[in-house]
Simulated assay, not measured.
Amino acid sequence: MIRLLQKTLVCWLAAALTLVPFAYFGTESKVAHAADNGLALKPYMGWSSYSLQVYDGPEGNWTSEAKLKMISDAMREKLQAHGYEYINIDAGWNGSMDEYGRPPPSETLYPNGFENLVDYIHNNGQKVGIYLIPGLSKEAYEKNLPIYGTEYHMQDIAAQPLRPADYWDIDYKIDFSKPGAQEYVNSIADLIASWGVDFVKFDSVTPGLAITTYRSTRGMT
């Protein structure tokens, strides 16, 4: 009986070793095919302030310059050698808005300037991203602020009748068939890129759901 069991186990092992190369090469083929189509081979690996925001409460300083520099240093020392290289600064990084309805960084959270923080993260060999949601702010619409570099204003590009652009009903939806709409989004992307930001976590982009996606500031449309 023992010999029969041993013989059976040997047969199973031989079958497994025979099938492994086929399974391996089959998976590798699919990965190569995905790469040819521009799909990522792995998720973004790094750290995001989001979870701390959820649990630290409204008085937390999870996105402060000092704390983010500490996170960057810790990642460089402990995790970077294992492929972790992204730092995402989630909601709460910005102040109110500039004269063109675009979100500037908070001067309170980043007293030495946001570019100083971005340079620090880059010097640690990492990439930095920030969080945005779609649409134009209700305050910008009410003030009918001008759109940078154009003759248009916020009320020219809002979808009518007015309706929410995001899951939380914070902003108004933009009608991209209207002149000035794409220029408004481009002006935000150009501003963010001018700070040296590498990517954007763009939230609430699926109707009815708070689902996130990432888009490069160099390719955002």
Rank of each mutant, 00 (worst) to 15 (best):
I2S: 14
R3D: 15
R3W: 12
L4M: 11
T8N: 12
V10S: 12
C11N: 15
C11G: 13
W12E: 09
L13F: 13
L17K: 01
A23P: 01
T27D: 10
T27L: 14
S29G: 15
S29K: 14
K30S: 11
V31Q: 08
V31G: 03
V31F: 11
A35D: 12
D36T: 12
G38N: 13
L39V: 09
L39N: 09
A40K: 10
A40T: 06
G46H: 04
S48C: 11
S51H: 13
L52N: 14
Q53R: 13
V54G: 00
P58C: 06
E59P: 00
E59Y: 12
N61S: 09
W62K: 08
T63F: 06
T63K: 04
S64P: 07
E65V: 03
L68I: 13
S72I: 04
D73E: 11
A74W: 00
A74H: 01
R76Q: 08
R76S: 08
E77G: 00
K78P: 00
Q80K: 13
G83E: 10
Y84C: 07
Y86W: 13
N88W: 03
D90P: 00
G92M: 03
W93P: 02
W93Q: 01
N94I: 00
G95L: 02
S96A: 11
S96T: 14
M97G: 02
E99G: 04
P105D: 01
S106V: 02
T108M: 10
Y110P: 07
Y110C: 06
N112H: 14
G113W: 00
G113P: 02
F114H: 10
V118K: 02
G125F: 05
K127H: 15
K127Y: 15
V128W: 03
I130A: 02
L132D: 02
G135F: 05
G135N: 05
K138F: 06
K138S: 11
K138N: 11
A140E: 08
E142S: 15
E142P: 03
N144E: 07
N144Q: 05
Y152N: 13
M154W: 03
Q160V: 06
P161L: 10
L162D: 05
L162R: 13
R163F: 05
A165L: 07
D166G: 08
Y167F: 15
W168T: 07
D169V: 05
I170Y: 11
K173D: 12
I174V: 15
K178N: 14
P179Y: 10
P179Q: 04
G180L: 08
E183I: 05
Y184M: 07
Y184D: 06
S187Y: 10
S187A: 15
A189D: 02
D190Y: 03
A193R: 05
A193G: 01
V197R: 00
F199T: 01
K201S: 09
D203P: 04
S204C: 09
V205H: 08
T206R: 12
P207K: 06
L209T: 05
I211Y: 09
I211C: 08
T213L: 12
S216T: 05
G219K: 08
M220Y: 05
M220V: 04
M220P: 00
